[in-house]
Write a protein that binds this DNA or RNA. Structure first.
Lengths: 248, 248
DNA sequence: CGAGAAATTGAATCAATTCAATTTCGGTGG
DNA sequence: CCACCGAAATTGAATTGATTCAATTTCTCG
């Protein structure tokens, strides 16, 4: 038979991350149309480049399984990690209507994506205002994220940055039905440090300190969250003095 | 007569910044339709809020004259300047399809804007694919800018950040037909420091140092650029040793 | 002209980096 | 399955860039 393997598991209608993805506000009819234009690709191995900044922009991608980092690089070759992406996240729409992608997306582990060819998506968006809005929404919340990050990088010290990163991860894993108390870091300390604007040594020192303070347990790439609320508070710059005030 | 004052000067067709604004890729017919939906407002005094993060999102704005800063604030009231905006720049589309604006826009001097009611703009965009693309393009280049800024904040030291800021300003003024060698800072040192993630004291010290090094001349808010190329190079992290190599 | 805001300058302090030396991890081939 | 290699991570000590605190000075504009 011409049926692809795994055919059942690869439709938006049955995807367990659709609540985080483009389908979120679509009705059955719209969803089906969207599902029709999606190309499913084979798994990408770790370190595979999904698209790079010299790839022509043709498609958006939705992460199906696994994880990615996106990186931009300056003329002099320095790299900057600008995001980490998990199932349900959309990739590539920082380049909508550019000729080329603005960043490079790299698989952090074996991963699968749904490809959304942009010109067909655009046609679909013309028919379905809700889809158009959904795309706008995604971009808009991407801006919000970037603004938050900008504040983080400008106003917070290393400790707060890393705690923000960890609570953020915990939250995102939770939304996706994974444990928010215990998860694997698929990115290296290097990636984290690069993203947060902090050296790898500092990341390392902070992680061991957090462990001593019993906020988390660190076992290589495995993180176990022990005190989520304290971490969240500290990531916002509230510290011991203030925390005690809150407690009393 | 019912004619507004200054009527002649306030059409996209005659606006001297249209090459930087939405009209850039439109033909006469399209331009006229766009021009029709634009509301011109009275000048805003310095420090006036154009929109704030609790204003419902209804319109985009194009800066016509003057300048603005956009600011986001965290729960605990800390503020972060996320951008400066000059004639031809579009404001507010980081909030497309959100209920509320994501940031607050404040006039840095007496300024005028063109208001683009979003729902009519959206209708227009449905008729004119080029306009749709233009909007996407603007968002996309906004992302690019944010990525660049993120790299700046993460990888560069204070000196490089401020030089980047100054060369960036020089460039933007140049594009707008103003002098790129000599310009007024409409924002305070505080705004600059906040934007660049550096204290006001550091900004101050650096400006006097740049002056001693004969890169610029500083007279209060007036900046005279003396060595643009050197500034540009230094803003990218190339320093004296490297500069000399280049010269030889 | 006067008052409050903005900017400058100096000295002391500190958070984070840099440099350097190990240790641990993860994957490959024997 | 174990040994081995390079990459990744940890830890310590010294250094530094930038902040903080504090005191003036200079603008701005009502």
């Amino acid at each position: 038979m011409g049926m692809k393997e795994l055919d059942i598991s690869i439709h938006c209608q049955t995807c367990s991350f659709s609540h985080l993805c483009l389908p979120v506000s679509l009705n059955d009819n719209e969803l089906e149309s969207l599902d029709d234009i999606i190309k499913r690709e084979n798994p990408l191995q770790k370190n595979t480049i999904l698209f790079s900044d010299d790839t022509p922009f043709n498609s958006l991608y939705a992460v199906r399984t696994g994880s990615f980092k996106t990186v931009v690089s300056s003329e002099d070759g320095q790299e900057q990690v600008v995001g980490f992406h998990f199932p349900g996240d959309l990739l590539g729409f920082d380049s909508l209507n550019s000729n080329h992608h603005q960043s490079t997306a790299i698989a952090l582990e074996t991963s699968m994506v749904c490809e959304l060819p942009y010109h067909t998506l655009d046609q679909l968006a013309e028919r379905f205002p809700k889809l158009r809005k959904q795309i706008m929404n995604s971009m808009s919340s991407e801006f919000k994220q970037k603004h938050e990050l900008m504040m983080l990088l400008n106003k917070r010290k290393a400790e707060e940055r890393l705690l923000y990163f960890l609570t953020q991860l915990s939250q995102r894993f939770g939304e996706r039905g994974f444990s928010n108390k215990q998860f694997h870091l698929t990115m290296t300390r290097n990636d984290i440090g690069n993203y947060l604007g902090v050296t790898i040594e500092t990341i390392s020192r902070l992680l061991t300190r957090f462990q001593k303070e019993k906020l988390i347990k660190v076992d290589g790439k495995l993180i176990i969250v022990l005190e989520y609320d304290v971490m969240l508070a500290k990531s916002k710059g509230l510290h011991d003095e203030l925390l005690q005030q809150l407690a009393s």
